[in-house]
Amino acid sequence: MTSRLLDKLNMLDRRWIFLAMAMAVLAPILLQIGSDETPSPPTIKLFDEIERLPEGSRILMAMDFDPTSAAELYPMALAFTRHCGVRRHKLFFVTIWPTGKPMIESTIKGVIQADFGSGDRPYVYGVDYVNLGYLAGDAVAISQMSSDIRKARPQDARGTNLDQLPIMTGVTSVKDMALIVNASAGFPGGKEWVQYAATPQNIPIAVGCTGVQSTQLFPYYPDQLLGLVTGIRGAIEYETMLAAKYPNPYADRSKRPAFLRGGAQRWAHRLMIGLIVLGNGIHLANRYRRTLHP
């Protein structure tokens, strides 16, 4: 009986595992099970820094990601932008990924225009925020920006000359930023911002990165990185802090896309742990069987 079960498990079609994974992710989505997170020190440091900076500080929002990593980084980008918006910082959006421009436009539309576009003091394009768009040249574009933004790109994403925008008055390079906040999916991204701008120019930088990239960035923290927000867990942590500090409106579920992905994450992790344990159980049982019947 046990031996037959072991044979069945040895021969298990991988499509059953695929189905189990699909179910583990789908069920929490349909049941709308979310998950909160306890903030970790590298995330708290970025949150505190954005809180600490005086109103109107210049923050460079480098959005170096595309749809392949948007699941982790787009919620992060929304949370960072919301926080900066609440604190009324001046935002400079830029990307060095050709596929990253729509991510900036989506963030601007979803946060700046939706949450801060009206009211007593609406965010005005060219005064409170600017979209510098895509800068070609990969890491070299970062090097150009750290010496002269206008050399990297004389116009904004709309084609307006940078000198015509009030927000650009007094801004020559990245050195004029109080903080760089980077949402990074790989190359070029967080590592290059540290190497080409933050470390040589001594500019404070915090990176929100994918889980895959995070281990490459750990050695930079805390000496070369002010904060490090890791994967979807980091995004949930940031949303949790934002919801705690500004419950109206950021405690609302519709403003917390990462929270809603947390439930699926939890169940899929449980499945992965179960699969690793079961796989090793089968491995040990096979070894035991081989010792019994060599």
């Binding site: 994974m21 948007a70 995070s214």
Partner: peptide
């Protein structure tokens, strides 16, 4: 483990 975390999030986004 961190890579697993990223890929699962992406799958969540597609199923959403």
């Amino acid at each position: 483990a961190l890579t697993v975390m990223g890929r699962i999030t992406l799958l969540t986004m597609r199923l959403q």
